[in-house]
Simulated scan of single mutants.
Amino acid sequence: MKSAKRPSKTKPSPRIRRTPDEARVLILEAAKKLVREKPPDAIGLKDVAREAGVSHALVTHYFGTIDALIDASLESLAEANRQDLFARIQSSAGGGPRAWMEQYFAWVMRPEAARLLAWAYLTGKTARSDFFSRRTRGLKKTADLLEARFREELDVSREEIELALMLLLTSSFGYAIGKNGFWGGLGVDKPGPEQDAAFLESLADVIESLIERRRKK
């Protein structure tokens, strides 16, 4: 009597070898993708591991906790935007102050950026000394570059540059989070690019007029 044939074993998929930097980037990109779809509090390390196609243990090895991973995602987004902004400011075709205002506004308006910023604020992370913006002093680096690029050309002081940055970031952040409700209250049910452009144009006018008024004092 012939013995039953054993089912053939499927060969396991070859293990992909990645450098630590490659693995970290892969995990960060997966986390940022998930943040575009849902709030950070609804995301776990296992969700990120599944999205990245890696083990839960690997995600834990590099980031430890979901809070640390979300914080790193926000830092990654901010750093990428800062590098783009620096290149634009240093370029001869930078377009002046309004160009970097547009760059910052566009970044804050990205769903994942607004969601991560709101999460960081509501969880109290922005007040902590280890929050990435405090550690990296990225905004100070931006102010340094703006001062070097525009101080003589536009006759603006360091204080005025920092004021412009604060007005731009706080106003843009509030707009990104509340624009649907705010415009809805004004009767615009589906605010789009036209409303966004009008808001940015008005905000830039306000910032420039305030700086001009301070200069005349």
Rank of each mutant, 00 (worst) to 15 (best):
D67F: 08
G124D: 04
E51S: 15
G95N: 03
E159F: 09
D130L: 10
I66R: 14
A113D: 06
A52S: 09
N81M: 08
A68N: 15
K140Q: 15
A87H: 10
H61W: 11
V59Q: 09
M109P: 04
G181M: 02
S172P: 02
A148L: 12
G64R: 10
A106D: 12
G53V: 06
S157Q: 02
A148H: 12
S55I: 02
G185P: 05
D67S: 13
R135P: 01
S91K: 11
G64F: 02
L117T: 12
S171Q: 09
V48S: 10
D155K: 09
N180H: 13
R115E: 11
F105T: 01
L163S: 06
D67A: 13
E51D: 04
T65D: 14
L154Y: 11
A57S: 15
S157W: 01
A164P: 03
I177V: 15
M109F: 05
E147R: 09
R151P: 03
A72L: 07
F182T: 07
K140F: 06
A143L: 02
S171N: 10
L74S: 13
G178F: 04
M109I: 04
D71Q: 14
S129Q: 14
R135W: 04
S133A: 15
D71I: 03
V108R: 12
S172D: 01
